[in-house]
């Protein structure tokens, strides 16, 4: 309130001085800044409006209905919500620890030079387009998993429902692994920033007590950066939930509630991408409603995670070498 008042006051003062250029430029900049907010509102409004027919037709039951029957115009979102949660959790279970491990390596262990190279590699990993990962996942990774990973896995864990059934290639399992590779840069980069923000005084305090590097990391650095690391993991989760093309190619797009990871499934994003072009009317509207839900979920995830990360950032950077 106060700040907007002072801004207005400053504007008036500038006007009185006759510096019109400054006022116009500031207003112009403000306009673009506000447009960012407008874009987000636009997304909400558009998806809300376009999904109206579906919301009218199915109401809340859309959330827990497993129906997916385009000829009879009967749709439910549950299989896709389920598929999104399952594949994202599988991805974060793999990428979370590995991403934090990379961050730990970069901040606590790696020499400066190597630090830059590894940082660049992680950046490149983020730059490879989703569709290329999808192609690689379905053509190269899935058959490789089928031949080398699934048989031993099934020999040991085949009795659990999670790893039962026949593995054909396109599967939740393969999708989760590709997803984990794709979200690794997100988790690693943000965890790295968080670990760098942990003050060296914390590290030195623990080292001076005679701690090893691992004890320093696990007892002083990690607890200090806990909220930020959690934020990084949640951001990775959000990215996995919204990732579309790779999953569309790999997961099989089968609208059912699966129990085995070797089964095929579908996520919210993949079902939209897979069916959008051929859909009309209520089908299209229900796909857009799924998009609205996806937006809401990823938006909330991102807001929460960003808040957690911002708790620790904006501090002098650390990173001593024990």
């Amino acid at each position: 309130m106060l700040s907007s008042l002072t801004t207005r006051f400053a504007l008036l003062k500038q006007l009185r001085r006759g510096n019109l250029g400054d006022v116009i430029f500031q207003l112009l900049a403000l306009l673009f800044g506000l447009s960012i907010l407008a874009l987000v509102f636009g997304i909400v409004f558009e998806t809300w409006a376009q999904s109206a027919p579906s919301r009218r037709e199915f109401g809340w039951s859309f959330l827990w209905s497993t129906a997916f029957d385009p000829p009879n115009d009967s749709f439910g979102a549950l299989p896709f919500i389920y598929g999104t949660i399952a594949s994202s959790i599988l991805a974060i279970l793999i990428a979370g620890p590995i991403g934090i491990g990379i961050a730990a390596y970069l901040v606590e262990i790696a020499p400066r030079r190597l630090n830059q190279i590894v940082g660049f590699v992680v950046e490149l990993l983020a730059a490879v387009p989703s569709i290329v990962f999808g192609l690689w996942g379905i053509i190269v990774l899935a058959p490789w998993l089928k031949n080398y990973i699934v048989p031993p896995l099934q020999a040991v864990l085949g009795w659990t429902p999670l790893f039962s059934g026949t593995f054909f290639g396109p599967s939740v399992f393969a999708a989760g692994i590709v997803l984990s590779i794709m979200i690794l840069p997100t988790v690693a980069a943000i965890s790295r920033d968080v670990l760098r923000a942990v003050p060296d005084a914390q590290r030195e305090g623990m080292l001076a007590l005679g701690a090893t590097r691992w004890e320093m990391f696990s007892r002083a650095v990690l607890p200090y950066g806990k909220s930020g690391i959690t934020g990084a993991v949640i951001l990775g989760l959000g990215r996995a939930a919204g990732e579309t093309m790779a999953v569309t190619l790999i997961i099989g797009n089968s609208p059912k509630i699966f129990t085995s990871l070797f089964d095929q499934g579908a996520t919210m994003a993949s079902i939209i991408a897979n069916n959008f072009a051929e859909s009309r009317g209520l089908f299209l509207s229900s796909l857009i409603e799924i998009g609205l839900m996806l937006f809401a979920v990823t938006f909330l995830i991102n807001v929460g995670a960003r808040l957690l990360v911002s708790l620790i950032s904006r501090q002098p950077q650390g990173g001593i070498r024990a």
């Binding site: 919204g242 579309t244 991102n302």
Partner: peptide, 25 residues
């Protein structure tokens, strides 16, 4: 100011919005 913080935060959050949702928009 507060508006700036809000826009900054929204921008950060926007980087996490799935591209397919932007496509729907």
């Amino acid at each position: 100011n507060h508006l700036g913080s809000l826009i900054r935060f929204t921008t950060d959050v926007m980087t996490g919005i799935p591209s397919i949702v932007v496509g729907i928009f």
